[in-house]
Design a protein around this nucleic acid. Structure first.
Lengths: 283, 283
DNA sequence: CACGAATGTGAGCGAGCGTTCGTTTTTTAA
DNA sequence: TTAAAAAACGAACGCTCGCTCACATTCGTG
């Protein structure tokens, strides 16, 4: 596994998330991951994604100079996501795309041979991002189901936050995928669900969770994660931050499965987290 | 934390001296509603909906004889829902629709003047169905938040079960609605959410629920309801009945909001539920 | 049966689609 | 400076789309 270089927009990297867990005190070990630390760990900027895209499609993309190709790709992809999420991929014409992205029709076809290829290129980056992040959970979590579940929810929310338009695109256009792509999407979706189910099963086995129907519960958690990017504008309007959403979902789920683990691991608890004093404890 | 006032559409004053606290036979009163009893109460068969559709569009539909018009409409709508849910409304051509429904191009235009009108007609029936069912909760529920919440979840699931393709259609094509329609959809969505928030607020006030963030919790319940029709095929494959889903969601939510009300109202508990002769699965 | 009214039909219209390719412009390098 | 290579361009092509309308067919009634 290679370490990703971090060309962060702002100045220096805000110090990665204390890489060595064996380090200091236990409280430090489970230091809460933030959206910022996620962004420091992975680079899902448009530029980074388009660079990976170029590498993956060197054979199809006819432009030679990498920095030109990446620059054009960025315009194309950015515009595609915007237009497609507004009116649907099929309703978006390549002429619209050309005009909005400032390229000519011919130039577009330097980057893909078919409109459908463009769709698949985008989908490919989405599923690659999913397996890159959710695919390799930190080993130290394997024996703490509650932490593992929390890590899953958190990672999912943070990932879909950085790549929100991408995920909306994949979600909305899924049914129009040309078979191959649709299966890929379904598989990826089910794999997320089974990761959740795994963590739940583990928790039940250790007597930490109390769940009637494992499969059903995992099914119910999935839409909560999807809602974050599908209805992103609603949450933005209400001023909900990614961290707040993670906490709300964790709490909601944690209570529902009657999670009896270390309260500070799953329940809201963390007082330093609070941005609003909010006594909130109704008695 | 701010208190959200809930501008309800048209609702009786919830405050009051709980008049019919104890009705006739308690068992009868809170007799569990089933999918079957819902179907008996409302007629959302294709025929019934198309009949209403015809009445609502007498001016646009040129066919005179009602029974012919309804029959044709049924074919048109049925086919539209099938095709649109498979490849998207915009990707479905009217030629496809004509062929599949067994009508000619010209005949189609006897029922709508524009492809967009067809879309709006379908959307209209969906939102009409929502307000017809969710809009008028039984009065005897106004003073039992847990029952009211349960009634909302139940009604929503049953409604979207009978009209599943309609709701998928509305959900998936929502972003392509021509403004007017999109606003209608958004409003309807928010109204459902505020009905939920209403019940939650009521429960918190009476000390029955324990909820940190009302608005957020209501937001989290909504996707659970949507998952039922959006991912219907998944649940069908797993053999989950509408009743089972209602129970799973109720239980999940009930625990999450630490509902302390009468257990039989919200918690699963009742194992004899399972012994019931299981609702008949319609085609 | 007859005959006007109501329905049904599908080829044809212009518009817009994805895609191509001969041409022009820009870049590169000697 | 210059010429070959790379990249950008956008009119043109064939096709399908939503939609129309002159005509054919069926229905309802005397």
């Amino acid at each position: 596994m290679k370490r990703t270089k971090i060309p962060q927009t702002a100045d220096g990297p805000p110090v990665g998330p204390a890489p060595c867990d064996k380090g200091a005190t236990p409280e430090r070990r489970s230091q809460r991951r933030t959206f910022k630390s996620f962004q420091a760990e992975f680079d899902f900027s448009l530029k980074a994604i388009c660079t990976r895209m170029l590498e993956r499609h060197r054979d199809t993309i006819r432009t030679q100079k990498p920095h030109v190709a990446v620059a054009r790709l960025m315009r194309i992809i950015q515009t595609t996501l915007t237009l497609a999420n507004r009116k649907g991929f099929h309703s978006m014409s390549l002429r619209d795309l050309a005009t909005e992205s400032g390229l000519s029709m011919g130039a577009l076809y330097t980057y893909f041979d078919t409109k459908e290829t463009l769709l698949m290129m985008i989908l490919g980056e989405v599923s690659s991002a999913v397996s890159q992040t959710l695919g390799s959970p930190p080993v130290h979590l394997t024996d703490d189901p509650a932490e593992r579940l929390h890590w899953l929810l958190e990672t999912h929310v943070y990932l879909t936050e950085v790549m929100q338009p991408w995920f909306v695109f994949a979600y909305m256009e899924a049914k129009a995928f040309p078979k191959e792509g649709r299966e890929k999407a379904t598989k990826s979706e089910l794999s997320t669900e089974s990761m959740i189910a795994d963590a739940l099963a583990d928790g039940v086995e250790r007597g930490l969770f109390s769940i009637d129907d494992l499969e059903m519960t995992a099914s119910l958690i999935k839409p909560l994660l999807q809602d974050w990017y599908v209805k992103r504008s609603k949450y933005r309007r209400r001023g909900v931050s990614p961290e707040q959403y993670v906490q709300a979902v964790t709490e909601f789920v944690g209570t529902a499965i009657r999670c009896r683990s270390d309260p500070k691991a799953v329940k809201s608890g963390r007082s330093n987290q609070r941005s609003e004093p909010a006594a909130a404890e109704s008695s």
